[in-house]
């Protein structure tokens, strides 16, 4: 009898349930998530049902008013436009990022690390500085117009900055690495013999790509889409700096509630709806990806 307990301790009955040691290791992360994710989200949720006071404080009552306002056509239109811009950004990121990610994943290990480093180099500089660099490139007497003029491609400088095109350029630039990295992760795991098998069975490069490579790297595309689409909807700095703040995105509207209109409850309601959209996107991608997951 005395020897038995030691044996059972060594052979846990349910290996999936973390023991106290695992909890001890998880504790910092759990506390972090609790303090900086769960609690703020809960506050946001509570605020979204409150009223504002004249200073911009929050009066604790219960009202659906803020949600009624979210579904005002003014804001719905902005939601739709934000989704459109974010969707366009995501599509462009996939189109530009996929070949890059695939090429990196198929390169030799040494070269792969160098190329990955290049993908991550932009993160070494502040996001704002990089955005200002784009302003320098796109402005009326900027680098791009100068180049095009000197090569006689155009006779008049193009009005590139402060246009929707500039916003999309800025968004794509900011989020491209977040598309490349997950696709790279998927493509790197892709077994080369599967591609050979496709060729062996008569698939040329195009059909091998569309019927084998794309479906098998779908988890990476899905993860990249999530990482690009969702933050791109809420982005406000790029629309301000590169779009001239002419056409508000939902991120700008939320920002305004906190920094200009002093209406935290309404801002919170917009934030909650925004999070629900995130969750919805996630669920859709998950359920569509489930078939391919294993």
């Amino acid at each position: 009898m005395s020897a038995v307990p030691a044996a059972t301790e060594l052979a846990p009955t349910d290996s999936r349930r973390p023991g106290w040691r695992a909890w001890a290791l998880l504790a910092p992360m759990v506390l972090w998530l609790l303090a900086f994710v769960v609690v703020p989200t809960a506050i946001l949720l509570v605020y979204s049902f409150c009223e504002r006071d004249e200073v911009g404080g929050v009066i604790f009552t219960f009202t659906w008013e803020n949600y009624h306002r979210v579904f005002d056509p003014v804001y719905l239109r902005i939601f739709v436009r934000s989704v459109y811009y974010a969707g366009l950004t995501t599509v462009i990121c996939v189109v530009l990022g996929y070949p890059v990610a695939y090429y990196i994943a198929r390169a030799s290990v040494e070269r792969r690390n160098q190329l990955l480093l290049l993908v991550m180099v932009p993160f070494w500089t502040s996001f704002l500085i990089r955005t200002y660099a784009w302003i320098t490139i796109l402005k009326q007497d900027g680098l791009l117009n100068g180049l095009l003029l000197s090569m006689n491609f155009i006779t008049e400088p193009l009005g590139l900055l402060y246009t929707p095109t500039a916003v999309v350029i800025g968004l794509v630039y900011a989020y491209l690495p977040f598309m490349i990295l997950p696709i790279y992760g998927s493509a790197e795991k892709l077994d080369n013999s599967l591609i050979e098998a496709a060729h062996d069975l008569g698939a040329g490069p195009v059909r091998a790509f569309s019927s084998v490579i794309v479906p098998l790297t779908m988890p990476g595309i899905a993860a990249g889409t999530l990482l690009v689409f969702v933050p791109a909807i809420g982005m406000f700095a790029i629309t301000d700096l590169m779009g001239g703040a002419k056409v508000p995105m939902i991120g700008n509207v939320i920002q305004n509630q906190f920094l200009q209109a002093r209406d935290w409850p309404f801002g919170a309601a917009l934030g909650v709806i925004f999070m629900l959209m995130f969750a919805l996107t996630y669920v859709i991608l998950q359920s569509r990806g489930a078939r391919h997951a294993t």
């Binding site: 504002r52 005002d72 003014v74 804001y75 239109r77 902005i78 436009r81 002419k246 056409v247 508000p248 509207v253 305004n256 509630q257 200009q260 209109a261 002093r262 209406d263 309404f266």
Partner: peptide, 13 residues
Amino acid sequence: AADIDKLVTDLKS
């Protein structure tokens, strides 16, 4: 302030 915000947001968008 909130009414102003909505008005301008609406017109801009």
